[in-house]
Nucleic acid binder design. Structure first.
Lengths: 141, 141
DNA sequence: TCAATATAGAAAATGATTTTCAATATTTCC
DNA sequence: GGAAATATTGAAAATCATTTTCTATATTGA
């Protein structure tokens, strides 16, 4: 999903893609990890992009509303991952916090006919290969 | 899952099922909705069970650790649902906050061999039949 | 029983998130 | 282009959620 598409998604709900938001979005989209608002704020800072924390919160809010950001609750902390595509399945590495889209067909559930399903999430949690290697290397037995 | 099993699950991690926790657990288990800690605190209060809010937080923490409570993040708010069984699939009504276990086989995902998957969640969000009826009834057009 | 450990609860502290508000920027429409 | 309307920014303040602290109490285990 390119920036123009995101801009149009935002505009569709009367949100604007300002230069501040665009800079933040670049940083957000280039991270393969889920981030807390504060982490995104600090990551932007490292790129010499100095945007207020409130603006970070507001960007993540509107991106979530249009489906470009996905919130994750891990150990009581709320993180956000950039999700350019409409896929709802993720693998979350609990060690490095990387989030990867994964293949797999949506499961079919037995929901009563009179229930309306508006969305679904299927997330896997575990340890990615890099982190397993790192853990093995650091392991002393 | 009965109380004895939960007690043993807790004891297995050096947690205790005190009388305060047992009272709270009864209230929690009898609710079909996901609840915030404050909501559980107030619901207990209505049952003349007066337990400190801190204790509510601590109960939900230990129940989550042993898998008896499941946290849900909805619109930025963290809720907990009692999940007596080990099933990981839920339907969450975004209107009344009821959480229902749903049938359906776990989806098979294409995760690389060298990734270790420790858990997964598959949740559906939508409107239950009761709430749809209620909404239709309240609808003026 | 004695020692070690876990818990309860109130209060205080912390941390995360939202609100407020004045200034600025962007869009809309004429 | 130039108002008027609308949305955004960012700092500060306010709010809300959660955790920590600490003392008293209860439970477990040797």
């Amino acid at each position: 999903m390119d920036k123009l598409q995101i801009k149009e998604l935002l505009n569709g709900q009367k949100f604007r893609l300002t230069s501040e938001r665009e800079s933040l979005l670049d940083v957000f989209a280039s991270s393969s990890s889920m981030l807390t608002p504060s982490q995104l704020y600090e990551l932007a800072d490292k790129h010499d992009i100095n945007i207020g924390l409130t603006t970070v919160y507001r960007l993540l809010e509107v991106l979530t509303k249009v489906g470009v950001a996905t919130p994750f609750l891990v150990d009581g902390t709320i993180f956000y991952a950039y999700c350019g595509c409409e896929h709802h399945h993720h693998f979350v590495c609990l060690s490095c916090h990387r989030v990867m889209d994964i293949q797999g067909s949506c499961p079919s559930f037995d929901v009563p006919d009179n229930f309306r399903v508006s969305s679904h999430r299927s997330d896997l949690y575990g340890t990615c290969s890099d982190c397993q290697t790192a853990n093995d290397a650091g392991c002393t037995h």
